[in-house]
Nucleic acid binder design. Structure first.
Length: 570
DNA sequence: GGGCCGTTTATAT
DNA sequence: TAAACGGCCC
């Protein structure tokens, strides 16, 4: 990942630091790098879609580091990757292929009973899916941590944030493992940050400003630097054989002009230079200069640096290599973590792509626990079990996303149920495109749910009365009744309870009370539900903040929040 | 000798 | 995934 050997090459500019240096400042985090590291501790569980608690250990890992930053009074801003840009498709496909191969090998070893070999292979098979990222997003939301999902590359988004002033919610540095950040022009980048906050920092001004340090970049500008990086080989374009970072540097510093470097290269390397190398090279350079990013102020897509008219003309106005344009409403939904940037579907909590075939009800526990509350939209929909029984499919790398039908995507956002596979949504349910008024959105969903309810007996509606969040799930999914006289401690599902609950699967359950980590569930007849769910008085008085915490309740989160205590906020 | 390239190893707990 | 190491070529 990133630019081949760039970090090694830039070593003279990289200095050890401790992140407390950034106390009182906003610091960006490349979510992918911590997600990937965190996933090592539970790679098998993630690959096998295990139902165990272990599967969520990557969240503990991530939150531990977030809390380390907060301990030093640093404001973390977590940035997630969005969709893939076309010129990265080859790289992504190759990674995908290797992961699949490793997963198959791991499964084979597992069958043989060689657990150690299997887990080693699973580690090479981990893929950070949008669903995994979304699990974390829900925790970040509940912890009030700033985050944004980039339309495409997180690196570009982070570099953009680093270019903003502090008053405009800019960041002063980025924590990552990816050398691309330097190429994108990030002002200060911290690599290899460990659990104590020690890391290695590169400050871009030192690179272009140093009089003495070698290799010298005094006569470089950002374009030349990017050119050097692309020549050395990046995710968007492999290098020409025989050209590494050192050759790239010496050529660029000798000719000081990328066109001249290209012609010299063709002269020297002849047939080793692919036919379309110049074009691909120009595009790769343009991605680093003008990548699409999300402008949180304007709430729409922008370029990290505006495209000069000259460049627009030279590439014939064809900008699809930067990834397709995305309309503002969709871009915002993606940025705010409400829409899967790859699958272009609303995130339907943890059920969608993670549920294994023939899952147990305890899976639901986790799913329902991670629901939390949706502050902005005030509602959340579950998909049905039938959808989830399908094997989770990896979304293939696609270069041809179309956003022509913005309405359709927004409708998906509102109602992420696949009607033919799940509950019977009558054809004549009017699906209007909502505006951005969350209240109207809620109204619309309630309307849809009413329709669904009256047309299908198999629908189970769960209402959290306190927040008026409406959850819609199928009758196969039964919420566990909390053990009585047990208001403290972690809620655990007991298999016998599950069986009992399963046997009354045709009944309709209404959550009437959420208390601590226990869900109190009552069952009622269809008629009484259709009339109106009734409110049950609270067992004990709780403060508003406590209630809020409870509504966000998720065992994993509770676990994560407990880690907060390791690093009390200064 | 410098630098490219393929292979090995640690990653987390 | 990327850093580190060692072999090999120009």
């Amino acid at each position: 990942m990133g630019i081949k050997d760039l970090l090694r090459f830039m070593k003279p500019y990289i200095k050890p630091i401790h992140i407390k240096k950034y106390a009182g400042k906003r610091v960006g985090i490349d979510a992918y790098s911590w997600l990937h590291k965190g996933a090592y501790s539970c790679s098998m569980e993630l690959c096998l879609n295990s139902t165990s608690e272990r599967k969520l250990r990557y969240i503990d890992y991530f939150m531990h580091r977030i809390n380390l930053l907060r301990h030093y009074n640093i404001t973390p801003v977590v940035v997630f990757d969005g969709g893939n840009i076309p010129c990265k498709a080859a790289t992504e496909q190759e990674r995908h292929r290797r992961r699949e191969a490793n997963r198959d090998l791991a499964m084979a070893k597992l069958k043989e009973g060689d657990a150690r070999a299997a887990s080693e292979l699973f580690q090479k098979a981990i893929s950070i899916t949008p669903a995994i990222a979304h699990q974390l997003i829900q925790v970040l939301r509940s912890e009030n941590i700033d985050f944004v999902v980039a339309p495409y590359e997180a690196d570009a988004q982070l570099a953009y944030l680093s270019s903003l002033d502090v008053e405009k919610d800019g960041i002063v540095a980025v924590i990552t493992e990816d050398s691309d950040l330097i190429t994108y022009g990030c002002k200060a980048t911290v690599f290899k940050m460990d659990r104590h906050g020690n890391g290695e920092e590169l400050v871009l001004d030192n690179v272009f400003g140093s009089e003495t340090c070698t290799p010298s970049f005094r006569n470089f500008d950002q374009e030349l630097f990017i050119g050097m990086c692309v020549l050395a080989g990046c995710d968007f374009l492999p290098s020409i054989p025989g050209i590494g970072i050192a050759k790239a540097y010496s050529m660029v510093s000798k000719y000081r002009n990328l066109d001249r470097v290209l012609s010299v290269l063709k002269l020297e390397k002849g047939s080793q230079v692919p036919e379309d190398y110049s074009k691909s090279f120009r595009e790769a350079v343009a991605v680093f200069q003008h990548a699409r990013i999300y402008d949180g102020d304007a709430k729409k897509l922008e370029h990290i640096k505006p495209l000069p008219q000259k460049l627009l003309q030279s590439i014939g106005g064809e900008l699809n290599f930067l990834g397709p344009e995305i309309p503002p409403s969709i871009a915002t939904a993606i940025a705010e973590g409400r829409l899967d940037p790859v699958g272009m579907e609303a995130f339907n909590v943890s059920l969608s792509s993670q549920s294994p075939v023939g899952k147990t009800l305890s899976r639901l526990k986790k799913a329902e626990i991670t629901v939390g509350s949706r502050e902005e939209t005030g509602f959340m929909l579950f998909t049905s079990q039938k959808t989830m029984e399908k094997a989770p499919k990896e979304v293939p790398v696609s270069c041809e996303r179309s956003y022509l039908n913005e309405d359709a995507a927004l409708q998906k956002l509102l109602l992420p149920l696949k009607d033919h596979e799940t509950i019977k949504v009558p054809d004549d349910v009017p699906l209007q495109v909502p505006n951005n008024n969350p209240f109207k959105k809620r109204k619309l969903v309630e309307m849809q749910l009413d329709q669904i309810q009256s047309n299908s007996k198999e629908v189970l509606v769960v209402t959290d009365i306190e927040k008026l969040d409406v959850l819609c799930i199928t009758p196969d999914i039964i919420l566990p009744k909390a053990p009585e006289n047990n208001n403290s401690g972690k809620r655990k599902l007991h298999s016998n309870q599950l069986d009992q609950r399963q046997s009354i699967s045709k009944e309709v359950s209404v959550i009437t009370e959420v208390e601590d980590t226990n869900l109190h569930v009552t069952t009622e007849s269809q008629e009484s539900v259709n009339s109106k769910p009734k409110k049950i008085s609270k067992g004990k008085a709780r403060s508003k903040t406590e209630k809020k915490k409870t509504n966000n309740c998720m065992s994993s989160v509770n676990k994560s929040t407990s880690i907060l205590n390791f690093f009390p906020r200064v």
